[in-house]
C-alpha cells in the first residue's frame, strides 16, 4: 500500500528526516512512535503532500507521489487526521462531515453522514452547531469521522490520543482497532508507545529523524523503552 524509501525532508537548512524507510502493507496497522520533534508529524505531512521531500521516494500502490499536492493524495485513497484535529470550527458538525467527502461524487454521501452519526452519537447531538463548540474528545471523533467520509483505504492518524482524558484515549484506540477490522490500512503516529505497540502489527521507533528500532509485539516493549530515550516514562504516558 505505502512504501517510504530513504525519505529525507528539510526545513530550510534544518534536516528533519534523515532518509527513513518503512512499509505499510494492505490491511496492516503500523505504528510510528517517538518523542516530540522526532519527525513523526513531518513524515505524515510528507506522505499527505503538505511537504515536499528533499530526497527519497514515497510510493502509494506502486506510484511515486513525491510531488503530488494534498488534494491529489486524498484522491488516491489516503486520508489524514492531523495533529491538533484541525476541524473547521466555523462550519457545523454536519458540514464538517460532508466536506470530508469532497472528493466523492456518488449519491451515498448522505447515507455515510448518517452512518457516521450512528457510529459517533455525539455528532448527531451537535449536528447543526458550530464544530468549534465541541470538546477536545468530541472534536477528535469528528476529525476521524471527517477523514472516514472520503472512504480512505489508508488512514493516517497523527497523535489521536493527545490531550484527551483517559476514557477518551481508550475510545480512540478501540476505534482504531475496529477500523483495522473493517479492512482500512492504518498508519498510527503516537507518543503513547505502549498502547501503540500493543495494537499495531509493527511499530517503528523514530528518534531525531531516523528509525532506530522496529517492534513487532509487546515482547519488544523493553527494548522500545530503551531506544525511546533511555527508558523515560514517556512510553507509559
Amino acid at each position: 500500500m505505502l512504501r517510504v524509501d530513504s525519505l529525507e525532508v528539510r526545513y530550510g537548512r534544518l534536516t528533519a528526516l534523515h532518509g527513513i524507510s518503512f512499509e505499510v502493507g494492505s490491511g496492516e496497522c503500523v505504528g510510528l512512535i517517538g518523542a516530540n520533534g522526532a519527525g513523526k508529524t513531518t513524515t505524515l505531512s510528507a506522505i499527505a503532500g503538505v511537504l515536499t521531500p528533499a530526497a527519497g521516494t514515497i510510493e502509494l500502490e506502486g506510484a511515486i507521489v513525491n510531488r503530488e499536492a494534498p488534494e491529489a493524495i486524498v484522491r488516491r485513497g489516503v486520508a489524514l487526521v492531523p495533529e491538533g484535529r484541525r476541524i473547521f470550527t466555523t462550519l457545523s458538525v454536519e458540514e464538517n462531515l460532508r466536506i470530508g467527502a469532497s472528493i466523492r461524487g456518488d449519491d451515498e454521501i448522505a447515507a455515510d453522514v448518517e452512518r457516521m452519526m450512528e457510529r459517533f452519537p455525539v455528532l448527531r447531538r451537535y449536528a447543526g452547531t458550530h464544530a468549534g463548540k465541541l470538546s477536545g474528545g468530541e472534536q477528535q471523533q469528528l476529525a476521524i469521522a471527517r477523514a472516514l467520509m472520503s472512504r480512505p483505504r489508508l488512514l493516517l492518524l497523527d497523535e489521536p490520543s493527545l490531550g484527551l482524558a483517559p476514557l477518551m484515549v481508550d475510545l480512540v484506540f478501540d476505534l482504531v482497532a475496529q477500523l483495522r477490522e473493517e479492512g482500512i490500512t492504518i498508519l498510527l503516529v503516537e507518543q503513547n508507545g505502549r498502547r501503540t505497540v500493543e495494537l499495531a502489527d509493527r511499530t517503528y521507533v523514530l528518534a531525531s529523524g531516523s528509525i532506530v528500532l522496529t517492534a513487532t509485539g509487546p515482547e519488544d516493549l523493553g527494548e522500545v523503552e530503551r531506544a525511546y530515550f533511555g527508558g523515560d516514562a514517556a512510553v507509559e504516558a
Binding site: G49, V50, T52
Partner: peptide
Amino acid sequence: SAPAQLEVPDEN
C-alpha cells in the same frame, strides 16, 4: 538556494 521545502506543491 535552500530548497523551498515548506512550499505546498502546486496542483497540476
